[in-house]
């Protein structure tokens, strides 16, 4: 009697263990499928920094165009003056390179601590997915500038950057898709309200990056 009770007890115990193992096994499969197909080493803090660079760049550009103590609507300069164009281009390039450097450097650091390699199948897919819209947008903007067509430059950059993010979002955090769509919306708004490009540009590349960086940091880091 006592023996059979013990037997039932152990029988129960062992099936319980097995059950737990099976659930664990399925969870590990899921986890691996996710981890192998998503590049999760993007750093939220780098996104906050990149947003800050963009805001600094935008503030400098604003100062160059409107002057320091401008009245509402009064401009010291217009964007079609050659000196201003060169200054703005150099600022944009500086912001771009500082952003790329910060993003890549912090991703490498995070990949190391995740024990993920930085150059793997997933990061390659992410890069290829983003490269097509990014290069198209960059060339589109440069050609527009060379044709002295400045009104749509901020829109073009925002829209193509948004397209690049939505294209890349399959290979990284899901939140990136939302960020991409918001960038596209801002780009379209910039087109709708010409002359305010710099404000939408600062919202899209500055404020949104900072907000999303904080979200990713809170959720995943």
């Amino acid at each position: 009697m006592h023996n059979s009770f013990l037997f039932i007890y152990f029988e129960k115990q062992s099936t319980f263990m097995k059950q737990e193992d099976l659930v664990k096994e399925i969870a590990s499969i899921r986890n691996l499928m996710e981890k192998s197909s998503k590049f999760i080493s993007i750093s939220g803090i780098s996104s906050v920094l990149i947003g800050t660079y963009a805001l600094l760049g935008a503030a400098y550009a604003y100062y160059e165009i409107y002057g320091f103590d401008s009245q509402m609507g009064y401009r010291d300069h217009y964007v079609n003056e050659p000196v201003i164009i060169v200054k703005l281009l150099v600022t944009a390039m500086l912001v771009l390179f500082a952003s790329i450097f910060t993003g890549v450097y912090m991703a490498i650091k995070k990949a190391k601590s995740n024990r993920q390699s930085i150059w793997n199948t997933t990061s390659r897919s992410l890069l290829y997915a983003m490269a097509v819209p990014l290069c198209t947008g960059g060339l589109f903007a440069l050609i527009s500038i060379s044709k002295e067509n400045y009104t749509a430059v901020a829109s073009i950059l925002l829209i193509f950057y948004g397209l690049a993010l939505t294209a890349g979002s399959n290979y990284t955090f899901n939140e990136i898709k939302g960020l991409g769509i918001l960038e596209i919306v801002l780009g379209l708004l910039a087109l709708l309200f010409p002359g305010n490009g710099i404000i939408f540009w600062a919202l899209g590349f500055g404020v949104l990056h900072i907000i999303y960086g904080i979200i990713v940091h809170k959720k995943y880091e």
Binding site: I29, L32, M33, E34, S36, S37, T121, T122
Partner: peptide, 8 residues
């Protein structure tokens, strides 16, 4: 599992 989630 990895090859199910990725084509290659």
């Amino acid at each position: 599992s990895v090859l199910m989630a990725n084509d290659e």
